[in-house]
Measured scan of single mutants.
Amino acid sequence: EESVKIVRLVKNKEPLGATIRRDEHSGAVVVARIMRGGAADRSGLVHVGDELREVNGIAVLHKRPDEISQILAQSQGSITLKIIPATQE
């Protein structure tokens, strides 16, 4: 059973501070990098390897990473992410 986590981040004009990529094996959209000091890093709630399912209620599974980045870039104020946390080894 996948544990889905709802994360709310507050982002002003600054970038979210995370990059995403598509996992070639599973097809999932995952967090590739977290930039120090960005909104994602400061929240402490988003981690490399987390699978991104939704951004502000928009399912991202069938979107290209550049489309998802665009949605994230255009979002201001509160951003709600639905993520499946990376499995902690």
Rank of each mutant, 00 (worst) to 15 (best):
S78I: 14
E51D: 01
V46G: 01
D23Y: 04
N12C: 07
A32H: 14
L9P: 04
D23R: 06
G27I: 00
N56A: 03
I68H: 01
A40W: 04
V10F: 14
R42M: 08
K82C: 05
A39Y: 09
A40F: 11
R33K: 15
R42E: 06
Q76G: 09
I34Y: 00
D66S: 12
R21N: 07
K5V: 15
G77Q: 10
A32F: 05
V46C: 03
H47G: 07
E51F: 05
R64C: 11
T80D: 10
R21E: 15
S69V: 11
H25M: 13
V31A: 02
E54R: 02
I79Y: 08
A86W: 07
P85W: 02
L61G: 14
E67H: 06
K11G: 13
G77E: 11
G57N: 06
R53W: 05
E54F: 02
V48H: 03
S69M: 14
A18K: 01
E51P: 00
D23N: 08
D23A: 06
R8Q: 11
H25F: 10
R36E: 14
R36G: 07
S75P: 09
I71K: 03
D50W: 00
V46F: 08
I79N: 05
A86I: 09
H62V: 02
R33E: 15
I83L: 12
R42T: 08
Q76A: 09
V4H: 12
R8D: 06
E89N: 14
N56C: 05
V4G: 10
T19R: 07
Q88L: 10
I83N: 04
R53G: 02
R21H: 10
I84M: 08
H62P: 05
L61S: 15
D66R: 11
G38L: 06
V4D: 09
A40P: 01
R53V: 15
S69E: 14
S75D: 10
A39C: 13
S26L: 05
H62L: 06
M35D: 15
G37M: 04
Q76F: 09
S26F: 02
V29S: 07
S75Q: 11
V30G: 01
L45G: 08
H47F: 05
I84G: 05
T87H: 13
V29H: 12
I6L: 08
A18Q: 00
V29G: 03
I83M: 10
E24C: 09
I83D: 04
L45I: 08
G27N: 12
E89M: 10
R42H: 06
R53C: 11
L61R: 14
V31P: 02
S75A: 14
H62C: 07
K5A: 04
R36N: 11
H62Y: 08
N12L: 12
A86E: 05
N12I: 10
Q76L: 10
V30L: 11
L52M: 03
V7F: 06
R33G: 15
G57V: 00
L81C: 05
R21G: 11
V48A: 09
I68K: 01
G49N: 06
I58W: 06
Q88V: 11
Q70Y: 09
A39N: 07
K63G: 02
R8E: 12
G44D: 06
K82I: 01
N12T: 13
I20Y: 06
L45C: 09
T87P: 12
L81H: 04
E54N: 02
I6A: 06
G37V: 02
E24G: 08
L9S: 05
L45W: 05
G77M: 06
G77W: 03
V31E: 04
R21D: 08
T19K: 09
D66V: 10
L9Q: 04
A86C: 14
L45N: 09
D41F: 08
K63D: 03
I71L: 13
V48D: 05
H62K: 13
V4R: 05
S43N: 05
A59N: 15
V31S: 01
V60D: 02
V48G: 02
V46P: 01
L52Q: 02
L81Y: 00
R33H: 12
V29T: 10
N12Q: 09
K82D: 02
I84P: 03
V31H: 00
I71D: 06
P65K: 08
T19S: 11
S69N: 14
S69P: 03
V55A: 04
H62I: 02
L16F: 15
E24Q: 12
N12H: 13
V30D: 03
E51K: 06
R36L: 07
G27D: 06
A32K: 10
V60E: 02
G27V: 00
G57I: 00
V30E: 05
G37I: 02
H25W: 10
L72H: 02
E51T: 07
K63F: 06
D41T: 01
R64P: 11
R8V: 10
H25E: 13
D23K: 06
G49M: 03
Q76M: 11
E54A: 09
S78C: 13
I71M: 14
I84K: 15
T87R: 12
D50L: 00
R36S: 12
A18P: 00
K82E: 05
I68V: 11
E51W: 04
V4S: 04
V10E: 10
I34T: 04
A18C: 15
H25R: 13
I20G: 00
H25P: 10
G57T: 02
K11S: 13
E89T: 10
I79C: 10
K5T: 15
I84Y: 07
G44Q: 07
Q88W: 08
V48Y: 02
I20K: 00
V55N: 02
S75F: 09
I84Q: 08
N56D: 09
V10L: 12
L9C: 04
A28T: 10
G77T: 08
A39T: 10
D66A: 12
G77S: 10
N56I: 01
G27H: 07
E67W: 06
K5M: 09
V30H: 13
S69H: 13
S75G: 09
L81R: 03
I58T: 11
L9Y: 06
G27A: 04
G17A: 15
V46K: 01
Q70D: 12
L81V: 04
V30S: 07
D66C: 10
R64F: 06
I79F: 06
V31T: 01
K63T: 05
G44R: 07
I34R: 01
E89F: 08
K82Q: 06
A86Q: 09
T19Y: 14
N56P: 00
R21C: 14
G44M: 03
G49P: 00
I34G: 01
G77Y: 07
L81M: 13
K13S: 12
H47S: 08
I84D: 05
V30W: 07
V55K: 00
V55G: 01
T80N: 07
A32S: 13
E67R: 04
G27S: 06
E54C: 05
V29E: 03
H25N: 12
I84S: 08
V60I: 10
T87Y: 10
R36W: 02
